[in-house]
């Protein structure tokens, strides 16, 4: 199997990571495909430096998150967080209000209120990464990650409860 094919196989096994990161960092669905392409390219570019002793997914988190945080694009008019929430949920039927998809949309909506680094911390926590990996991926101390995460949790709690209050 060629190096390229083995890379694509590994990427596709973990494509959920790329799709989720793109959804967190970019509002416009069309732009997400471009961000996914850019992340794939950056991972491919540094693929030689990937040591198979470590998990491919751990390596993927680090490269993709840093690419998403630092990527620049020509700015379109930014969607407001409310608009993006509407787009995320408009295809979901009203009677499915408590469906998993609605709940997921609420989580993505809450992400929009966080800063770039906060998004990266919360995302890795939700993916089940330990604090030590989160700190290594972002170059922060473990204590720093813990403290930030405590704040993010409070922020998320208040955003979600506000969303639910508005719905009622």
């Amino acid at each position: 199997m060629s190096k390229e094919q083995s890379f694509l196989d590994q990427i596709n096994q973990h494509r959920g990571i790329l799709y989720k990161i793109a959804r967190i960092y970019v509002d416009d669905p069309e732009d997400r495909a471009d961000l996914i392409q850019e992340m794939t390219y950056q991972v491919w570019r540094s693929y030689d430096s990937f040591k198979s002793q470590s998990l491919f997914s751990t390596y993927l988190y680090r490269i993709c998150l840093n690419t998403a945080i630092l990527s620049f694009k020509k700015e379109k008019r930014r969607m407001t967080t409310e608009e993006s929430f509407y787009i995320e949920t408009e295809h979901i039927l009203q009677d499915d209000e408590n469906s998993k998809e609605i709940q997921l949309s609420k989580i993505y909506y809450a992400f929009k209120h966080l800063t770039e680094i906060e998004k990266a911390i919360l995302f890795q926590y939700l993916e089940g990464l330990p604090h030590s990996d989160i700190s290594r991926n972002l170059g922060l101390s473990e204590v720093n990650v813990r403290v930030r995460f405590h704040r993010i949790k409070e922020k998320i709690k208040s955003i979600i409860s506000k969303t639910e209050e508005n719905e009622n």
């Binding site: 494509r15 961000l35 390219y41 990527s71």
Partner: peptide, 14 residues
Amino acid sequence: PILNQLSASEKFQN
């Protein structure tokens, strides 16, 4: 699935 597009994006650039 992510296809064989291992080139840089024109829209997103580091």
